[in-house]
Design a protein around this nucleic acid. Structure first.
Length: 278
DNA sequence: ATGACATATTCAATATGA
């Protein structure tokens, strides 16, 4: 089974590239982030014609996550129970919840698509929101792991954190910036403390997953590594290979992020055995 | 000094991104 994560930066602007890549790379399950549309706006047809079912969690022109899979998706959940909101409180005083997290189970593997809040600036309310969001997710993950011992779990997505200085092209440029601050790195390390680990880095130590559109960042290879697949021990044991698809940053109308993929030692049914989707 | 790029939305000017 081939499982991937990709911040697509608008699925409506990227649908052809995304579906082409899924088919070309024989991906079974894709976790998407920044789909930037509501469920009713999602370009479903291109996916279904290629044999993929889609589960969507979108709210408006910002954020939004989704899964595309050619294997059945079960136990679809949107958001998580203790997830904090952000923005203007409603009459009851609660903050709007953003579409940044959802999960599905495929072949007994629990998969999350995560779009961690950006943080904007150190000290910005959005920065506190980012740290709170991550810490609440870690607590939730702790509880889930305790309740589902031995079940493979992967938290996949755009973490908006560069855990190592070498995860940005020049750490000096990031002095005083988000993504590299100690509290963000501590929040990321909190997931490692739960027994999750970056199953891609242990196979691909070097390489970015994001390059800004501006300032010739990609031609200069001035990028960041911020998209990760954090697997539980049971998940990590299934991983046989990993890849970062840098070529998807090239060509016409790319996303600013590229796909990150793992191969799992889970046999999938032949095409002939798979139900047809029209 | 600032923007540079790309996406969304009340299609014009603004919000967001990292």
């Amino acid at each position: 089974m081939r499982v991937a994560t990709w911040n697509v930066n608008s699925i409506r602007a990227r649908v052809d590239r995304v579906v082409d890549w899924l088919v070309r790379e024989e991906v079974d399950v894709l976790a998407m982030q920044e789909i930037k549309c509501r469920e009713d706006q999602f370009p479903l047809l291109a996916f279904t014609e290629a044999g993929y079912d889609v589960e969507i969690h979108g709210a408006n022109q910002w954020n939004g996550v989704a899964f595309a899979s050619r294997l059945p998706m079960d136990d679809v959940t949107r958001g998580f129970e203790t997830m904090p909101g952000f923005g203007k409180p409603d009459a009851a005083g609660s903050l709007p919840l953003e579409a940044r997290a959802m999960a599905v189970t495929v072949d007994g593997v629990r998969l999350w698509s995560l779009y961690v809040p950006n943080g904007r600036e150190l000290g910005d309310p959005h920065y506190e929101y980012k740290l709170d969001w991550l810490n609440k997710l870690a607590v939730q993950t702790t509880e889930w792991l305790a309740a589902h011992p031995g079940v493979p779990l992967a938290l996949m997505g755009d973490w908006n954190i560069a855990p190592l200085d070498s995860d940005v092209w020049d750490i000096r440029v990031f002095d005083g910036s988000t993504h590299v601050s100690e509290p963000e790195r501590a929040a990321f390390a909190g997931f490692e403390a739960l027994g999750l680990r970056d199953v891609v880095r242990e196979r691909i130590p070097v390489g970015f997953t994001y390059w800004d559109y501006k300032q010739l960042r990609f031609p200069r290879n001035e990028g960041m590594r911020i998209d990760f697949i954090m697997g539980s021990e049971a998940f990590a044991e299934l991983v046989t290979d990993a890849s970062i698809h840098r070529n998807e940053r090239k060509g016409t109308a790319p996303s600013d992020h590229v796909p990150v993929l793992v191969d799992l030692d889970i046999p999938i049914p032949d095409d002939d055995d798979r139900p047809m989707i029209f």
